[in-house]
Simulated assay, not measured.
Amino acid sequence: MLWSSGAPAWADVVPGGNGTGSETQVNGGKEGRTVSATAGAIVFDRSRNGSGQSAGTVTSTTTWTPPACYYAPKYSPEELKAYLEPIWQAESTGYQWDAEQRARYVDGHPYKDFNKEKSGEGYWWDSYVTEGREGDPGALDCKEPPFWVDKGDAPPPNIPQAITPEMLAQLAYAEIRVPSTKVDLAPAGATKVNLPTWAWLDGADFKPVSVTASVPLLGIQATTTAEPVALELDPGTPDAETYPASGTCRITDGHIGEPYAKGKADRNPPCGVRYLRSSGEGTFPLKATITWKIHWTGTGVPGERTLPDGTFGAEQAVTVQEIQAVNR
């Protein structure tokens, strides 16, 4: 059996929503911080996600993107009837389409009376469009009309976009939020030409974050986790050097760079930058980008699987001043 019907606690849950099936329906509760929300049949648990106004989404380091559309349970027999019959009564879709739909769902070709005799024994599956991907050409790939799947059965093999734990992991990837990458600098405020400037991030803010996506109706879930692995510094001008020379500061034991402290003035920073000219009356846009290694675990999938690394960066203005010589 490829699909489970879910835990007993979910036995009375039924799919459905107020939308047309062409968009993602989002419902859920909020208590201080969002813990979970639903997107149709999918429930997202964000309790271990990054938070705060400065948190943002990661961008894949490849051309890969999460699926723009997918199929999952959406209607009970009664809900599909309540959805389709007003459309037919309005006659807004044309006689031929209405007749074909009535034949498919009412007259027994192949379904009869919306499969009411199977009420509670399965669900009508339909397409969903991933939130934020409504204008994506890939959102048009899910063209199948609603189809029936008995509890415990796999969806038809000709439906490649049918929801799976791997797809849940990919959808959870899009929900990942990571903290801001604004770095602490020493000297703070303004630095000097040819003076090594130390850069670091508070390691306490850069711990793994994760989002779990599940379909309780099917008893499947996947957790996608992002872990910080490196900080890349771009000084914002070619007239600068970075520490290390590659500009990539590796993250070890949760530490990103090293805070400056008294007594370190004669040392080069393990992570930082040295500007070779003044910023004049302006500033240089120092960009700090964190690379996050992303992996997932899911129902029926042994071990961990990987997804493309993600990045998130931010710019901050750095003032670089000339060192003033004093003539005596």
Results as ranks from 00 to 15, higher is better:
residue 175 E to L: 04
residue 26 V to Y: 10
residue 103 A to R: 14
residue 15 P to N: 04
residue 16 G to S: 01
residue 127 S to F: 04
residue 288 A to G: 03
residue 263 G to S: 09
residue 173 Y to V: 08
residue 302 P to Y: 02
residue 131 E to M: 10
residue 220 I to Q: 07
residue 153 D to S: 13
residue 153 D to I: 03
residue 302 P to H: 07
residue 261 A to N: 07
residue 112 K to C: 13
residue 252 T to M: 09
residue 5 S to D: 15
residue 40 G to D: 06
residue 148 W to K: 05
residue 21 G to T: 01
residue 45 D to A: 12
residue 212 T to H: 03
residue 76 S to Q: 12
residue 195 L to W: 08
residue 28 G to P: 05
residue 138 G to K: 11
residue 323 I to S: 13
residue 215 V to G: 04
residue 229 V to I: 11
residue 50 G to C: 07
residue 59 T to D: 14
residue 201 L to Q: 00
residue 238 P to R: 03
residue 117 E to Q: 13
residue 2 L to A: 15
residue 81 K to R: 15
residue 311 T to H: 03
residue 19 G to D: 08
residue 123 Y to I: 08
residue 168 L to A: 09
residue 117 E to T: 12
residue 4 S to E: 15
residue 257 G to E: 00
residue 79 E to M: 12
residue 218 L to D: 05
residue 159 I to D: 12
residue 103 A to D: 15
residue 168 L to S: 08
residue 254 G to W: 02
residue 208 P to D: 11
residue 203 G to L: 00
residue 214 S to F: 06
residue 314 A to H: 10
residue 320 V to K: 04
residue 43 V to A: 12
residue 94 G to Y: 02
residue 288 A to F: 01
residue 60 S to Q: 13
residue 1 M to Q: 08
residue 240 A to E: 04
residue 321 Q to A: 10
residue 186 A to G: 05
residue 15 P to S: 03
residue 319 T to Y: 08
residue 254 G to Q: 08
residue 21 G to I: 01
residue 87 I to S: 09
residue 70 Y to I: 08
residue 314 A to F: 06
residue 294 I to H: 01
residue 57 T to Q: 14
residue 223 T to V: 07
residue 304 E to T: 14
residue 23 E to P: 02
residue 83 Y to L: 13
residue 232 E to D: 12
residue 5 S to Q: 12
residue 291 T to Y: 00
residue 156 P to Y: 07
residue 180 S to H: 01
residue 155 P to D: 05
residue 300 G to H: 05
residue 23 E to G: 13
residue 59 T to R: 15
residue 89 Q to R: 09
residue 72 A to H: 10
residue 27 N to I: 09
residue 14 V to Q: 03
residue 127 S to W: 03
residue 153 D to W: 04
residue 253 D to R: 11
residue 266 D to N: 13
residue 182 K to A: 09
residue 119 S to M: 11
residue 193 V to E: 05
